[in-house]
């Protein structure tokens, strides 16, 4: 991936900034706007929005599915809206649906949700420098952190960029959940096929962003890269197999980080 592509002048000077951004984004979603801020001040707010757009669109089917399922489980539109705003976590939201239906206790729900979302602990720690200083904006920005936003953000992002990325994905998520609940209300149950896996686009986007991020972050830093990646993937796979999809996150992330550190040291 060419991350420090030289900025070429627009042919004839007639192409719009948006067109340039779009073209550059299609080539390189991460650094599509690097250097653009100097070219045009107006571009700075649209750049992170455009970067976040594919991820935001990819999570729409997942969130709509949540809305439909919540409606089927007798959640009102307002409850779907509130849970999407206050409990903004994809997997956590899906997990509480059957738990609420079974009248599970608060502590049970909390332990399960915290276990599923424990990956956010290290993620949140690594993004603190990008967040606003004012405490209440900082809290809101921290709450808006999601997997897709984390994978879209990059180290050089400003606070404003970070907020735009997180807010874009968050608003798409909340709107799609409410729309899903509305669809669940309007569409007969038998019309909704359960054979189509609506969550796949979100997985595809996360895989794409993860591979791009890893490629960018390991560039020049490690030797025997394929071997190192294979070793890490094996370790993660072993933890996943051993502790299961809910509880493997924290130990696995820490062990992988230690392995990466040791690998670098031995080089």
């Amino acid at each position: 991936m060419k991350f420090h592509r030289k900025v070429e002048p627009a042919a004839g000077g007639e192409r719009s900034t948006a067109g340039l951004l779009q073209e550059r984004f299609m080539r390189d979603p991460y650094n599509s706007g690097r250097g653009m801020a100097q070219e045009s001040g107006k571009a700075t707010s649209s750049r992170p929005f455009i970067r976040a757009l594919p991820s935001a669109m990819a999570i729409v089917p997942v969130s709509m599915l949540f809305g439909v399922l919540a409606h089927r489980a007798d959640w009102s539109m307002l409850e779907v809206l509130v849970v999407s705003v206050l409990g903004f976590t994809g997997s956590g939201q899906f997990a509480v649906l059957p738990l609420a239906e079974a009248n599970a206790g608060f502590l049970t729900m909390l332990i399960i949700c915290a276990s599923i979302n424990s990956r956010y602990l290290p993620i949140a720690l690594t993004t603190t420098t990008r967040l606003p200083r004012r405490w209440w904006v900082r809290i809101c920005a921290a709450h808006l952190l999601g997997d897709e936003a984390y994978a879209t953000e990059k180290d050089g992002d400003t606070t404003k960029d970070t907020l735009i990325i997180r807010l874009t994905i968050f608003l798409f998520w909340v709107s799609a959940a409410v729309l899903g609940a509305l669809m669940g209300k309007l569409i007969p149950g038998e019309w909704l096929s359960t054979d189509i896996h609506l969550g796949f686009p979100a997985s595809v986007v996360l895989i794409y962003l993860s591979v791009s991020q890893i490629k960018r972050r390991v560039a020049g830093g490690y030797r025997l890269l394929p071997l190192m990646v294979a070793a890490c993937l094996l370790v993660v796979g072993a933890f996943h197999q051993w502790l299961g999809a809910t509880f493997f996150w924290m130990p696995s992330v820490i062990m992988t980080a230690i392995l990466l550190e040791q690998w670098k040291k031995h080089e």
């Binding site: 990956r119 290290p122 993620i123 720690l125 690594t126 420098t129 997997d147 984390y150 994978a151 180290d155 997985s203 996360l206 895989i207 993860s210 591979v211 991020q213 890893i214 972050r217 390991v218 830093g221 990646v229 890490c232 993937l233 993660v236 796979g237 996943h240 999809a245 493997f248 996150w249 696995s252 992330v253 820490i254 992988t256 980080a257 990466l260 550190e261 670098k264």
Partner: peptide, 21 residues
């Protein structure tokens, strides 16, 4: 370490998790 190594570890975990799911 948190800014360089930890994110790589998180993304590697994402990949394995998503593939297995």
């Amino acid at each position: 370490w948190m800014e360089t190594t930890l994110p790589i570890a998180v993304f590697l975990n994402f990949i394995v998790y998503l593939v297995l799911q």
